[in-house]
């Protein structure tokens, strides 16, 4: 039997799929922004000499990386609402779940990036009378950010993949749309392939954008 790959079913539903893709990218982007913002204070707290900061940060990072995304999603979307704690839209619950999970990974990435800045930079900054905070903000962070971009991009891709799980809480993302069409048209192979290709395409674009950003920011920094 010759297997026929039916491209018409994809082109017929391309606008729905692209709408779904847009939503997937949006929720992943918001999730990533949350992860990148939360990760920074977490990384700093994790490097602090004070156990009062270090211990909670370490716990958070462990939890964020250890608890499966699906559980975070269910917890934020269903469990919290059921207990009357708060209720979020599927989009917000999704972005927040991705953000919380991603924060653990981003924190580790920042930490590694901070330690990659040679200790002489800190000393050079201290020697001209910069405070610790100035040293961090003006000398360490700008150099570390550059190292953090490629692995940070990996986290974005991870969240993009994770975003496909959000169809379980009814977010009409790309995977949700693909599943719907697949069931109606009896063409699961075509539609899931299309979905996979779209995710890969976005991933590639993201990687390219990261490359450009990294080159822009690496002005003068090359070791």
């Amino acid at each position: 039997m010759v297997f026929a790959f039916d491209t018409t079913v994809i082109s017929d539903h391309s606008s729905e799929l692209l709408d779904g893709l847009l939503l997937t990218v949006e929720v992943a982007a918001l999730g990533f922004a949350i992860a990148a913002l939360l990760g920074l204070p977490l990384a700093l707290a994790g490097r602090s000499q004070s156990p009062l900061l270090r211990v909670p940060a370490t716990l958070w990072v462990g939890l964020a990386r250890g608890v499966p995304l699906l559980i975070v999603i269910f917890w934020l979307y269903y469990a919290a609402a059921q207990e009357g704690l708060f209720s979020l839209t599927a989009f917000l619950a999704g972005a927040l779940s991705l953000g919380l999970t991603g924060s653990g990974y981003m924190s580790e990435i920042y930490r590694t990036a901070f330690s990659a800045v040679p200790s002489g930079q800190r000393e050079g900054a201290a020697a001209i009378g910069l405070s610790r905070w100035q040293t961090f903000r003006l000398v360490i962070f700008p150099q570390a950010l550059r190292t953090a971009i490629p692995p940070g991009m990996n986290v974005f891709v991870m969240l993009l993949k994770g975003a496909t799980l959000l169809s379980v809480i009814g977010l009409a993302d790309m995977f949700y749309t693909a599943k719907l069409v697949a069931v109606n048209e009896f063409k699961p192979f075509e539609l899931y392939t299309a979905a996979a290709v779209l995710v890969i395409a976005v991933t590639l674009v993201a990687a390219l954008a990261a490359g450009v950003a990294e080159r822009r920011m690496s002005k003068g920094v090359r070791r």
Binding site: G120, A125, A127, V139, R223
Partner: peptide, 12 residues
């Protein structure tokens, strides 16, 4: 003022 063996100028 302090001057170091490895310069420690800010590369960025």
């Amino acid at each position: 003022g302090m001057v170091f063996q490895q310069f420690n100028v800010f590369p960025h």
